[in-house]
Design a protein around this nucleic acid. Structure first.
Lengths: 346, 346
DNA sequence: ATTTATAATTTAAACGTTTAAACAACACTT
DNA sequence: AAGTGTTGTTTAAACGTTTAAATTATAAAT
């Protein structure tokens, strides 16, 4: 079904049909009715390809994700798509499949580059109005994405680079979490860090230290542990922290997996959470649902990040926003029962 | 950058440039070199919209998912996209966001319908070559999708309806799992069912019963429990099964969440897994990683389902496959340490 | 009755490709 | 010298829209 066919069925010109469809010129009531009837009857759907070609705008945005199977990605995509839909846009998704690549190949960096180029070929070829990159925002990427002439928004990235971005706050979040613990009377801290080289690990640790410094608490070297984000490694590392009489009264774990590791380590050592040791996590991941006592953690605004990334992109597309904009959203505290109020009794 | 511009820069006609790009006619070496040079220099990318319009094929397929945030969806999408990419196709994703809808609205069924229609408007408008529907394949959907004139493949669906489909085997999988338990000497079974109205629950239970019947074991009514797929409900229900001296020696849980519930119930009652009671799960979900002893479970071929769905769709698109094809893929056993071999000693 | 203004409709070009058909240039046959 | 192939290139139509401009019809004003 094409405009032409509809037109000939209705005995009018294609222009008239187009005007009816888009309400873009005056059409007599009689003609409008006639045309609309035929459109309904035939179930005509306009050819978006042709429309975009002619109008020189596609109402398409490209979404490049580092790995769909990383759970938070889906929530961000969800947010992106929700706004897209509401604003009449569509998305094409490109998955860099980084997780597999890094595991299985040495030279993943160059492949990475090549994959992005390929994704860009398609997206630009499809005349996308803009691109959202969901991932860590490695500097290499902004190098590649930087010199295309379409608006780009980086979403989830940690560090500020060139380009607009939407992220969640790491440093502040852990800062507040730690402060909360301090306010509850904790003075002896342990910390379970994530992978050393990773950006969020550094940021989160900064927030932790900042709260401690402000309260005049010094951190003992021996109470700093690293679980590389993993449950099992976190558990092992936690055993060392806890297996001494003067163990910390609170352990701040930089993600939930390791927090559960800490909880399990405590249990194996015969310590109760939160009575003997308090534990906090980060992410509000699924695992939290299964653990008793519920571990106090923090939720990232994943869907909201998707919303904002898309909105920001569309602002750039329409020219409402010019220049780089950088948005950092707060996380929300999810209170469980894993933190003891040491000063309650007073 | 358009063909025309390239052509004029190279001093040839657009046709020649097109021929160079697509290798679709003989071009003299001299001209080819000249054109290729300019293409490289300008970074020209062909306008896929125009190409598709002219060629009357889009190399686009639409993917409709019931909810991206349901974890298995991402793996299926991953599989779909991998094949798509390899075959030069692109995908546009539409998320029905069913999870939120069902929770927040009464009349979700009609909305559902409307959302699919909307997704179809876009996809057909974009001239997709075919559509993959990822979800339960409610009959209402095949009703809507059935009368579009593009090939459709249903992926993940449970029941056979009209249309081609790719699914994993529920019945057989639990049948084999149960048989394995029987071969290990178990005779007294408990079962932890999923949501009663759900298709997979019924299928899995059938598999379970079949194995029992073949072995001449009768199932005691009192040992049938239902946890509605949930950890907490599974745990509660399991307590009743286990809180008696002649409790079953093995409990088959129809998903991992409930299996962990069974494990935790056992622990709270002072029973050891697997020594006092064996437990099996289904899904190989993330939670399995955190639980000791590792619960024996089963992994669905999610990515593979994506592969096959896409391949099947493309077969339909190219006309290689005609008529409905229905593929059922096996799950793979992931052996943990939650099953006791009762007949080992003999 | 002619002009003028307004409303409704059509014509035709344009968007960036592909591709059948036409054409041109050349080398071989006769 | 005229015909026959090849090889390389161009011309122009087509895909399904949108939209400026032209056209026609109708009504109002003189």
């Amino acid at each position: 079904m094409t405009l032409k066919e509809i037109a000939s069925m209705a005995g009018v010109s294609v222009a008239t049909v187009s005007y009816v469809l888009n309400n873009t010129a005056q059409v007599s009531d009689e003609t409008r009715k006639k045309v609309e009837k035929i459109i309904k009857e035939t179930g005509y759907r306009s050819n978006i390809l042709a429309k975009s070609l002619r109008r020189n705008e596609s109402f398409l945005v490209g979404v490049i994700v580092e790995d769909v199977t990383v759970w938070h990605t889906a929530y961000i995509i969800d947010g992106i798509n929700e706004i897209a839909e509401a604003r009449g846009y569509n998305t094409i998704l490109s998955n860099l499949r980084l997780l597999n690549k890094i595991e299985s190949q040495f030279d993943h960096i160059s492949n990475y580059q090549k994959d992005i180029d390929k994704a860009l070929d398609v997206m630009i070829g499809m005349q996308v109005d803009g691109i959202i990159y969901v991932g860590m925002h490695d500097r290499k990427i902004s190098h590649v994405l930087g010199n295309i002439k379409k608006p780009v928004v980086y979403c989830y990235c940690y560090t500020d680079g060139e380009g607009s971005s939407v992220r969640y706050s790491n440093e502040k979040t852990v800062y507040h979490m730690t402060k909360m613990l301090i306010e509850n009377g904790h003075k002896e801290f342990g910390v379970m860090n994530g992978l050393k080289e990773s950006e969020p690990a550094a940021l989160r640790y900064n927030g932790f230290l900042k709260a401690l410094n402000e309260a005049g608490i010094t951190m003992k070297e021996e109470n700093i542990a690293c679980g590389n984000w993993k449950y099992r490694e976190g558990k092992e590392a936690a055993k060392k922290l806890l297996n001494k009489s003067d163990h910390p009264t609170a352990i701040v774990a930089m993600n939930d997996d390791m927090a559960v590791g800490v909880r399990d380590a405590a249990r194996e050592l015969g310590l109760k959470v939160p009575d003997d040791v308090s534990v906090t996590g980060f992410d509000n991941s699924d695992i939290i649902q299964y653990v008793t006592p519920r571990i106090t953690t923090v939720e990232r605004p994943l869907q909201e990040m998707g919303y904002r990334a898309m909105e920001l992109l569309l602002d750039h597309v329409s020219g409402v926003s010019v220049g780089d904009v950088s948005i950092t959203l707060p996380c929300t505290l999810i209170e469980g029962e894993s933190v003891k109020k040491l000063n309650q009794g007073k």
